[in-house]
Simulated scan of single mutants.
Amino acid sequence: MPSEEISISTLASEIAQWDKAKGSTNQNNDPKSIEIALHHTHLPKIADAGIIAFGPNKDSIKLQELNGLGQFLTETEPIDGFSRVAAND
């Protein structure tokens, strides 16, 4: 089932806040830099994979399909260096 649309700027702000809370030393973790990277690099690749769709003005996205996404996330966790938080944490 598709999700609700979220603006790319809102997504970038959320990522910047998450990155800051994790204590990242990334020089490009301000919301505008993240938004540019999302818009021009990351989101088009995710859209090409059929996981998200851009809104009519390409300034928002929505999740298209979750089938198989859980397995993908599980398999890529070691590559990204992140692990899921347990439900009781």
Rank of each mutant, 00 (worst) to 15 (best):
M1R: 13
M1C: 14
M1Q: 13
P2L: 14
S3F: 07
E4S: 14
E5I: 07
E5P: 04
S7K: 05
S7N: 08
I8D: 02
S9K: 05
S9Y: 06
S9F: 05
T10H: 12
T10S: 13
L11W: 02
A12M: 01
S13A: 09
A16L: 06
Q17L: 14
Q17F: 09
W18F: 14
A21P: 01
K22T: 06
K22P: 02
G23F: 11
G23A: 15
S24F: 14
T25G: 12
T25M: 11
T25D: 15
T25C: 10
N26A: 15
Q27E: 15
Q27N: 15
N28L: 12
N28K: 14
N28R: 14
N29K: 13
D30W: 09
D30L: 08
P31I: 03
K32G: 10
I34L: 03
I34Y: 01
I34Q: 00
I34M: 01
E35D: 09
I36W: 08
I36T: 12
T41V: 14
T41R: 09
H42M: 07
L43G: 00
L43I: 06
L43P: 01
K45H: 12
K45V: 11
K45F: 05
I46T: 03
A47T: 04
A47D: 03
G50N: 06
G50M: 09
G50S: 07
I51Y: 03
I52T: 05
I52S: 01
A53D: 04
A53F: 02
F54G: 01
G55A: 14
G55C: 07
N57L: 09
N57C: 10
N57S: 10
D59S: 13
D59C: 08
S60M: 09
S60G: 09
S60I: 07
I61H: 00
K62R: 12
Q64P: 04
E65V: 07
E65S: 11
E65L: 13
L66W: 10
G68S: 07
L69N: 02
L69P: 00
Q71A: 12
F72I: 10
F72M: 13
F72Y: 15
L73S: 07
T74I: 11
T76E: 05
E77N: 08
E77M: 12
E77P: 08
D80I: 09
G81D: 07
G81Q: 05
R84T: 06
R84N: 08
A86W: 02
A87Y: 06
N88K: 12
N88I: 02
N88V: 03
D89R: 05
